[in-house]
C-alpha cells in the first residue's frame, strides 16, 4: 500500500491503485480485508469493462468487415502501384536515336510514309488544278452575247463607235497585204463594197 493511501485515505486504496490493479491483474491484499475498497474496485472494474466494450463497439461499428476488406484491397492496390516501375516517356526523336534506328522495320515504315506524303502532295496539286479548270468558264462570251441580246437595243450606236467601224471596213477593203486570188476576183467585183452600201444607206 502506498504511503499516501495510508495517510490520506485511512488505509483505503486510491482510485489509481484500483485502476492499476485492474490493468495488471494483480489483486492487492487490502481488497481481501476491506469491503468498501472491494466495492469500489468492482465499480471501477465495471466502468473500465463497459468503456472498453463501448469503445471497441464504436470503432467496429464505424469499420464493419466490408469496409475493412475494402481498405485491405486499397492497401494492396497502392502497394502494387508502388512496386510497378514507372514509365518514362522520352521524346520520339531522342528515343529513335537511342534505339539505333537502322533496323529494317523502321526503314520500311519511313519509306511507306514517304510514299504516302508524295501521294498526298500529288493529290493536292491535282485537286488545285482541277478546281481551277472547273471554275474557268469558256462560256463567258456566250453569257456576254446573251446579256447583249436580252439588253434593250439602242437605236443608234454612238458616233465614236460608228467611225471606228467605218475605219475597220476601209482597212479590210483596201488592205494591200491581202492575198489576191484571181478566181475570186469576179465574185469580189460583184459584191458591193461596204463604204458604198453605207453611203447609199445614208442617202436614204
Amino acid at each position: 500500500m502506498r504511503i499516501a493511501d495510508t495517510l490520506l485515505r485511512r488505509g483505503h486504496l486510491s482510485e489509481d491503485a484500483l485502476v492499476a490493479a485492474w490493468y495488471s491483474g494483480v489483486c492487492p491484499a487490502h481488497l481481501d480485508t476491506c469491503d468498501l475498497c472491494t466495492e469500489r474496485a468492482l465499480d471501477v472494474s465495471r466502468w473500465l469493462e463497459q468503456t472498453r466494450e463501448l469503445g471497441m463497439a464504436e470503432a467496429d461499428a464505424a469499420f464493419p468487415a466490408e469496409r475493412l476488406a475494402a481498405q485491405q484491397a486499397q492497401i494492396l492496390r497502392r502497394l502494387e502501384q508502388l512496386d510497378r516501375p514507372s514509365k518514362l516517356l522520352s521524346f520520339p526523336r531522342v528515343a529513335a536515336a537511342t534505339a539505333g534506328h537502322h533496323d529494317f522495320a523502321s526503314r520500311e515504315h519511313r519509306h511507306f510514309a514517304g510514299w504516302i506524303l508524295a501521294a498526298a502532295a500529288a493529290g493536292l496539286i491535282l485537286g488545285v488544278i482541277g478546281g481551277r479548270l472547273s471554275t474557268w468558264q469558256p462560256t463567258a462570251p456566250a453569257v456576254h452575247t446573251s446579256a447583249a441580246a436580252t439588253a434593250p437595243r439602242t437605236p443608234k450606236a454612238p458616233d465614236t463607235l460608228r467611225s471606228l467601224d467605218q475605219g475597220a471596213d476601209l482597212l479590210l477593203e483596201s488592205d494591200p497585204g491581202q492575198p489576191q486570188i484571181r478566181s475570186l476576183s469576179a465574185i469580189d467585183r460583184m459584191t458591193p463594197q461596204g463604204t458604198v452600201v453605207r453611203a447609199s444607206n445614208r442617202r436614204r
Binding site: 469503445g55 471497441m56 464504436e58 470503432a59 469499420f63 475493412l68 481498405q71 485491405q72 492497401i75
Partner: peptide, 17 residues
C-alpha cells in the same frame, strides 16, 4: 497481406479513437 490481416483491426481501432 498476412501482416495486414493480423494488425488491421487493432490499427483501425487505435487510429479511430
Amino acid at each position: 497481406t498476412e501482416l495486414v490481416d493480423r494488425h488491421q483491426r487493432r490499427a483501425i481501432r487505435i487510429a479511430f479513437h
